[in-house]
Simulated assay, not measured.
Amino acid sequence: MMPAERRLPLSFVLDVLEGRAQHPGVLYVQKQCSNLPSELPQLLPDLESHVPWASEALGKMPDAVNFWLGEAAAVTSLHKDHYENLYCVVSGEKHFLFHPPSDRPFIPYELYTPGTYQPSDRPFIPYELYTPATYQLTEEGTFKVVDEEAMEKVPWIPLDPLAPDLARYPSYSQAQALRCMVRAGEMLYLPALWFHHVQQSQGCIAVNFWYDMEYDLKYSYFQLLDSLTKASGLD
Score class of each variant (00 low, 15 high):
residue 220 S to L: 14
residue 156 W to R: 11
residue 219 Y to F: 14
residue 50 H to A: 05
residue 152 E to N: 05
residue 88 C to G: 04
residue 77 S to L: 14
residue 55 S to F: 06
residue 128 E to T: 09
residue 148 E to H: 11
residue 189 Y to A: 08
residue 143 F to W: 05
residue 226 D to R: 02
residue 173 S to P: 02
residue 114 P to R: 14
residue 155 P to H: 06
residue 20 R to E: 15
residue 18 E to D: 15
residue 183 R to L: 04
residue 97 L to C: 14
residue 76 T to A: 12
residue 209 F to H: 09
residue 83 Y to W: 12
residue 113 T to N: 07
residue 205 I to Y: 05
residue 2 M to L: 11
residue 170 P to R: 14
residue 179 R to T: 15
residue 99 H to F: 15
residue 65 V to A: 04
residue 158 P to W: 00
residue 40 L to P: 00
residue 200 Q to Y: 00
residue 226 D to Q: 09
residue 201 S to D: 01
residue 114 P to T: 15
residue 190 L to F: 00
residue 205 I to F: 06
residue 156 W to P: 02
residue 29 V to H: 00
residue 102 S to N: 11
residue 84 E to I: 01
residue 213 M to E: 09
residue 18 E to F: 08
residue 140 E to F: 06
residue 182 V to G: 01
residue 227 S to R: 15
residue 58 L to S: 12
residue 121 D to L: 12
residue 8 L to N: 06
residue 92 G to L: 05
residue 64 A to S: 13
residue 158 P to R: 03
residue 36 L to K: 04
residue 58 L to A: 11
residue 28 Y to P: 05
residue 138 T to L: 08
residue 124 F to Q: 08
residue 122 R to G: 03
residue 161 P to N: 09
residue 94 K to Q: 09
residue 96 F to W: 10
residue 134 T to D: 10
residue 138 T to Y: 07
residue 71 E to Y: 04
residue 168 R to A: 13
residue 15 D to I: 00
residue 98 F to N: 00
residue 53 W to D: 12
residue 72 A to S: 10
residue 83 Y to R: 05
residue 100 P to Y: 02
residue 166 L to D: 11
residue 196 H to R: 08
residue 94 K to S: 04
residue 171 S to E: 12
residue 224 L to Q: 13
residue 63 D to F: 08
residue 32 Q to E: 11
residue 68 W to N: 02
residue 132 P to S: 10
residue 28 Y to N: 08
residue 156 W to A: 06
residue 32 Q to N: 09
residue 49 S to I: 07
residue 56 E to H: 12
residue 112 Y to H: 12
residue 212 D to V: 09
residue 148 E to W: 02
residue 111 L to D: 14
residue 188 L to N: 05
residue 154 V to W: 03
residue 84 E to R: 03
residue 188 L to G: 04
residue 55 S to C: 11
residue 209 F to P: 00
residue 48 E to G: 15
residue 69 L to S: 01
residue 24 P to E: 08
residue 79 H to V: 02
residue 156 W to F: 07
residue 206 A to C: 14
residue 212 D to G: 13
residue 229 T to W: 01
residue 58 L to W: 03
residue 84 E to W: 01
residue 96 F to K: 03
residue 152 E to S: 13
residue 13 V to E: 00
residue 103 D to V: 06
residue 23 H to G: 04
residue 73 A to K: 12
residue 189 Y to P: 02
residue 71 E to H: 10
residue 97 L to V: 15
residue 107 I to F: 03
residue 84 E to H: 03
residue 142 T to R: 14
residue 84 E to V: 01
residue 35 N to L: 05
residue 203 G to P: 03
residue 49 S to K: 12
residue 169 Y to I: 07
residue 51 V to M: 07
residue 76 T to Y: 07
residue 11 S to L: 10
residue 192 A to H: 06
residue 148 E to F: 01
residue 222 F to I: 15
residue 26 V to K: 08
residue 166 L to K: 10
residue 159 L to M: 04
residue 112 Y to S: 13
residue 164 P to F: 02
residue 156 W to D: 09
residue 48 E to K: 12
residue 223 Q to C: 11
residue 146 V to L: 12
residue 40 L to C: 09
residue 72 A to V: 08
residue 68 W to H: 07
residue 166 L to N: 11
residue 119 P to A: 06
residue 139 E to V: 14
residue 212 D to L: 07
residue 115 G to R: 06
residue 84 E to N: 05
residue 80 K to P: 00
residue 23 H to N: 03
residue 83 Y to A: 08
residue 37 P to H: 01
residue 57 A to Q: 13
residue 232 S to E: 15
residue 112 Y to F: 13
residue 210 W to Y: 07
residue 193 L to F: 07
